[in-house]
């Protein structure tokens, strides 16, 4: 995409307002929002066989910030998490709205919101901010991860267990639910992904994600955690940003470690993943040096 700033369209006025197209059919405000995202720390999501992982390169902006505090990956409902890259306050507002959507779905349907429905609603919400001159688009790209329960839904506080056969009864062996991953951009565009990346290091991260053959559905959640950590480390640019913290959350199946809930990756596992990530980086550097020597 050609930057509108470098374009001849500068000064034509089509970049001043939302809700006004340029003659060649572009909404420059949205494109500027994308720019804001491109400056954010890298965020990655991986949809694994038995769960989803979210990882974030949290750039340390000040030494005065307490290490490990100020978490950036948020819980939306018990089974859904969101990580975003771009303007932090915009991300906060996105999360707040997503929580409201999840809560209102529950009060309406007495069941957790499916990941797809949440992505759809948030997509629509973000898109609405591209339509009006009184607002600006979201300066974030958000990655939504969810595990839709494969279990029979226990309706909250239901009276009785319901009919055992026939209409309204249970079908044996019926499977639904599973891991889901969506990425929502400032335009409101959203797709479901096997692996998603956004922020500064998205290009490197995406190419790393492609190597994982996620579409085969072979990658386990634990491997996913390690890959996510490695990708954040690979995508990190030492020259530009010195320090960062790795933040990771995951959602497993009901039988897995988080029992279908969105939780922080346990400290031990995260540290092991980081150790492996650093090791693989060192190995790569060694290889390159060897090649240079040859």
């Amino acid at each position: 995409m050609v930057s509108p700033l470098a374009d001849t369209s500068i000064g034509t006025g089509y970049d001043l307002s939302n809700s006004v197209f340029s003659p060649d059919g572009r909404n420059f405000q949205v494109e500027y929002a994308v720019k804001a995202v491109e400056n954010g720390g890298t965020a990655v999501g991986i949809r694994c066989k038995d769960g989803v992982v979210l990882a974030l390169e949290k750039l340390v902006t000040s030494r005065l910030l307490k290490a490990g505090a100020n978490k950036r990956i948020s819980t939306i409902d018990r089974n859904i998490g969101v990580v975003s890259s771009g303007l932090l306050p915009d991300g906060r507002h996105f999360v707040s709205r997503a929580r409201d959507e999840a809560a209102s779905w529950r009060s309406m349907y007495k069941a957790p919101i499916p990941s797809s429905a949440l992505a759809n609603r948030m997509g629509s919400y973000v898109q609405a901010y591209t339509l009006y001159s009184s607002v600006r688009p979201f300066g974030v790209t958000a990655i939504v991860a969810g595990w839709d329960s494969e279990a029979e839904l226990p309706v909250d506080g239901q009276v009785g267990a319901g009919p055992k056969v026939g209409s309204g009864g249970k079908k044996e062996g019926q499977k639904h639910g599973g891991p889901f991953l969506y990425m929502i951009e400032p335009s409101g565009l959203y797709w479901g992904y096997y692996g998603a990346a956004t922020g500064k290091g998205r290009q490197i991260a995406k190419s790393e994600l492609e190597k994982l053959n996620l579409a085969d559905g072979e990658l386990s959640l634990e491997e996913g955690v390690k890959e996510a950590a490695r990708i954040i480390y690979v995508a990190h640019d030492d020259n530009k940003d010195k320090e960062f913290e790795l933040e990771m959350t995951w959602i497993s199946s009901l039988s897995g470690p988080t029992k279908g809930r969105h939780e922080e990756v346990p400290k031990e596992l995260r540290e092991e993943a980081e150790k492996l990530a650093k090791k693989s980086l060192d190995d790569d550097e060694d290889e390159e040096e060897e090649k240079m020597e040859e």
Partner: peptide
């Protein structure tokens, strides 16, 4: 009353979800 019980159950559910927005 059972329907009031169900209401309280939903109330507790939403409370639990809000409590778990942050894990610390």
């Amino acid at each position: 009353d059972v329907s009031d019980m169900q209401y309280l159950d939903r109330l507790l559910n939403s409370l639990d979800i809000r409590e778990n927005y942050s894990s610390s």
